[in-house]
Nucleic acid binder design. Sequence first.
DNA 1: ACCTGAACACCGTTCAAGT
DNA 2: ACCTGAACACCGTTCAAGT
Lengths: 212, 212
Amino acid sequence: MTKPESVGSKYTRHSRDDVVAAALNILDEHGLPDLTMRRLAATLDVQPSALYWHFANKQTLLASIADQIVSRATLPGQTEHEWKGATRAEAEALRDALLAFRDGAEVVSSTLALGLGAGEAQKRLSGAIRGGGFDQGRSEVAAAALLHFILGHVSHEQQRLQADSLGVVPQEHSADPANATTGARGREAFDFGITLLLSGLELQIHAGTLSD
Amino acid sequence: MTKPESVGSKYTRHSRDDVVAAALNILDEHGLPDLTMRRLAATLDVQPSALYWHFANKQTLLASIADQIVSRATLPGQTEHEWKGATRAEAEALRDALLAFRDGAEVVSSTLALGLGAGEAQKRLSGAIRGGGFDQGRSEVAAAALLHFILGHVSHEQQRLQADSLGVVPQEHSADPANATTGARGREAFDFGITLLLSGLELQIHAGTLSD
DNA sequence: ACCTGAACACCGTTCAAGT
DNA sequence: ACCTGAACACCGTTCAAGT
């Protein structure tokens, strides 16, 4: 499935999608630091320079990877009708999608400024928020705030996951009960942050200014 | 001032602080991608290997840089007495400190998992929040949420700053009025996000559960 | 206490040329 | 349409040895 058509050509040939799929594989199995152009080329039995026929540079490739990760964030039932529940569901789906790939949050974060990858995520969030009757501008700024929290939280979570697996545990930081953003408490802390933002946003319905 | 004592030795010698100061200089003038160990060594008129006497690795050096950036986040008047104002003031000070150095937010973010650099920031925030009567655990989780938003927002801001300066402006994303996290609207969007989190947190005072 | 010199094992990217 | 081969200009890190 990852392999190309292999029509009677002299050597293996790949499509753009093949490259992205192979990259996602390396990312999930070895992490972002190991996702190099040279290593990716090697797993495809190809010279590193061949990748530059498919992508202008590594940054562009990472953007495509981010797109794939975010696009896998699908809602389960879609049975939510009120905006808070709908927005929370989008946030949870996004968290799950980011957690599904090693270093997923960091990859998506790195493409945020380019409007790729994370752009789709922000659209979903702001769309759900708009269901609450907020205007376009407010919905987008609120969605950006949600997205920053989500990416930061999950990124933190994933950094710790791999720091712990490497045994690089400075002091008590690993199993510290006060550090509520890891492990089983990860989901709890995540929900708490989302709650703060959503209930704060709800108060804004009857407010006309951005200030307090 | 950056130069060492230069007591009659055969070549220039530097302290750990000299190295950090020079690194901060490179960071601010050329950005994080240009902050390499080799380049840093060159500006200090030293071999790259010399840096490894002062720091175990680049990660550790970045942590010290993050510490410096965060420690510069000082409050102006300290005239706030109620927790919301005090917490907002800490958040603003942190934002200013991050913006004071090119790629400052990204550097601090990258050290978040290690508990260095950003740890100091989280302590300040949770300390201010505790003034509202929240227990230790809640204050820390809330501070983490604030910190994730702050780092994500400023990081986004700084990424766009340098993307624009490089002329890499995909489509209308640069001056897009809908993109409310850049330029003059950056401060506004930042304050809005902080408001959402703080007012959401205020509602939690009379709530016993983490859920909605 | 702080640095040199030399090496190891890598990177991303370009570009003419091949099929 | 997709890839090779070869090169360019870099990286972070280690380690014995010097002063």
